[in-house]
């Protein structure tokens, strides 16, 4: 099994981003809150894309393309 810490990393980033989002919303800075969520999601998406690339490379190796 691969490195499973990535799930915990994504969940951690998600919780922190949700917290910052709530705080900024309480302070009345709606646009910053949206921006923080976007940046967090892009970081997470980069991690996910690396994993997906790994899976597709393995599929190509195994299934003799």
């Amino acid at each position: 099994m691969g490195d499973t810490t990535i799930i915990f990393q994504i969940a951690g980033i998600g919780i922190i981003v949700a917290m910052i989002h709530t705080i900024l919303k309480q302070l009345g800075k709606e646009e910053y809150a949206q921006f923080i969520t976007l940046v967090g999601f892009i970081i997470v998406l980069m991690m996910v894309i690396n994993q997906l690339l790994q899976l597709f490379n393995r599929i190509q190796q195994v299934f003799l393309f």
């Binding site: 799930i7 998600g14 949700a18 989002h21 969520t37 967090g40 999601f41 998406l45 994993q51």
Partner: peptide
């Protein structure tokens, strides 16, 4: 469990966790 936790506050992250779990299962 993580998806349940993040479902309301950050739905995008719950989606990302779903994809990663899928990838782990398929890689295994």
């Amino acid at each position: 469990l993580f998806r349940l936790l993040l479902k309301d506050q950050a739905p995008l992250f719950s989606f990302a966790i779903g994809i990663v779990v899928f990838i782990f299962v398929y890689l295994y």
